[in-house]
Design a protein around this nucleic acid. Sequence first.
DNA 1: ACATACGGGACACCCCGTTTAT
DNA 2: ATAAACGGGGTGTCCCGTATGT
Lengths: 193, 193, 193, 193
Amino acid sequence: MPRTSDSRQRMVRSAAQLVRRQGYAATGWRQVVTASTAPWGSQAHHFPGGKEQLVAEAVTLSGARFERLLQAAMADAHPAEAVQLWADVAASELAVSDWADGCPVATVALETAHTSEVMSTACAAAFQSWQDVLRRAMTNRGLTEADAASLSMLTLSAIEGALLLSRANRSAEPLRVVGRELQALLLARIPGP
Amino acid sequence: MPRTSDSRQRMVRSAAQLVRRQGYAATGWRQVVTASTAPWGSQAHHFPGGKEQLVAEAVTLSGARFERLLQAAMADAHPAEAVQLWADVAASELAVSDWADGCPVATVALETAHTSEVMSTACAAAFQSWQDVLRRAMTNRGLTEADAASLSMLTLSAIEGALLLSRANRSAEPLRVVGRELQALLLARIPGP
Amino acid sequence: MPRTSDSRQRMVRSAAQLVRRQGYAATGWRQVVTASTAPWGSQAHHFPGGKEQLVAEAVTLSGARFERLLQAAMADAHPAEAVQLWADVAASELAVSDWADGCPVATVALETAHTSEVMSTACAAAFQSWQDVLRRAMTNRGLTEADAASLSMLTLSAIEGALLLSRANRSAEPLRVVGRELQALLLARIPGP
Amino acid sequence: MPRTSDSRQRMVRSAAQLVRRQGYAATGWRQVVTASTAPWGSQAHHFPGGKEQLVAEAVTLSGARFERLLQAAMADAHPAEAVQLWADVAASELAVSDWADGCPVATVALETAHTSEVMSTACAAAFQSWQDVLRRAMTNRGLTEADAASLSMLTLSAIEGALLLSRANRSAEPLRVVGRELQALLLARIPGP
DNA sequence: ACATACGGGACACCCCGTTTAT
DNA sequence: ATAAACGGGGTGTCCCGTATGT
């Protein structure tokens, strides 16, 4: 028996994947443990808080991962371009996975908003972190704090909504359309470099 | 024993309520039947398609209900005003219900996009119907078909996203902010009456 | 699928046997279901009250069964003889089963006295019914109510205690000794036929 | 880190208490360790024989404790008085603890008679030691060895049985009644001082 | 249209024991 | 002697669907 193993990490990663596709309630411990090839008996050890804790960590992981991606995109290009790119990437990810891989946080957020404090907190934190990246990119380009806050929220909302509609319609169109609209909007409102 | 009863209707209504708050997987037959005070032995009779059929109908019902509301709002006022109102109403509904009553379709849509044909179809239809109302209201005000399609999709996406964020953050702010932004945007792009 | 089955009864019977040997906590649903060759999925249907209800019924069954035996014994013979016989039969049952089959109620009674209302009630009722048989047999022989109550309680206590000691010592001696002592005592205190 | 501690002792003591109330199977290692405020990592060190060893020692401890009490009582008074006192004390202990604290050995004895050699041995030893105290007190008062053996076994059985019935009925009556009956019996059969 | 009985299968939880490293 | 990671296996509960009868 090794003193330490990566079972825990593997479980979180598998949970993140599964929850992204199926949501919280439809994803069982069994499935997570199987998918992660982790030993069954260790869940309680690694996650004394139960499935709730596991999924909360999975959401946090997904949130952090995507935050880094977003940050990189915002560093390289004008927000308008970055958002457009974001929409395109999301659309293709969605299409490639046969409309399975949408926003890794949204489903859990909706399922647990009213149910579980710890999970809804994790979801809120993820969303917040993404908005913050957007907001900072905008203020860096000269927008006032107020405008940046407002515009970043609209941007995030529109993308999340488009992700939802694209998944529901099994079509990339909502993401593409919203991507184009947002690009125009951001170009108009954010000063060039 | 009466030859006809409203059990079926009551079940659909209860399912709609419960699914809006908890999602599909977390809502059980037992809970629906109990909440609707309908007889247990009738589920299979009324819904041979099982829980899937029940929830699909619940989603359709919710979709139709909201479509009528939206249509009324769009008939009375400029889309910019109607959307602003929509956001405000949604925000207060959300707050009053302690962040339980968000979009009645979104949760199910995300949970079942990849799983169930019949439910995802029902969800897509609901979203489509709402977008159509928006689109028609815009063409009626003089927008081109293309612009109306694009703008209505952005509007619906943004509202749906804001509903998600408001629920996740347990705060009405996203809805309020997005409502204001959309109002400005629509005012600018849609000719007056 | 038959409209009705004897699964329920079989489960209760198996539970009675198992609980007699292992007690409540050590006896699992699995074991009961397996032993009774009943279908696994029906426990909740037949016993909505859970394992508690199952075992309570098992205890009640065991209690009623033994009550009939005791009644028959008391009808045929002087209580002194009947008690002596009782002790002998219990001793041989115990020895034959390798000290497994003691009092079918005592273990559960001790385990659950402080824990479960429904089970302790069932146990108390069983004990009470046995004492009542003894008591009535004594009053029928001319003892006063007070004496019969007191003496029947001593008798039941002594037998139960001897069953305990015999099981603990893996020896029939306690039951035999106590049987003899009780016989003498009852002969002395209860008028002949 | 101290080279020696009283953790071991504390665990045994806590186990004795818990097992008295809940029995063996329902009492978990975690509960014992928590209740004893002993370090978790020490169970295997102190009790390589596992829970079985722990509880066997707990039973032995309880047995020895009570043996001393019984011995003191028998030294001071006629067995008839001592037994009467015993019943009274047991009854009040039981009532005060809300029918939780009965015989500290009986439950484990019944649960493990057929299961575990080491535990049933410990239980048998405890019972034996108590009977020996009674027996010696009787021979000391002039009874023959045979009579003392027989009478002490009846006495112990009756008390144990009364403890069981009192716990099951949640009433002190069985202990009181049996106490009185035993007192009379012992007075009649054991010569005065 | 409703009621009841029924059953396969999965659920999340947690226990107990072991193994490592202090 | 203590701490902590770890894992195999089993716990009781409950869900969803169906089959049969009224």
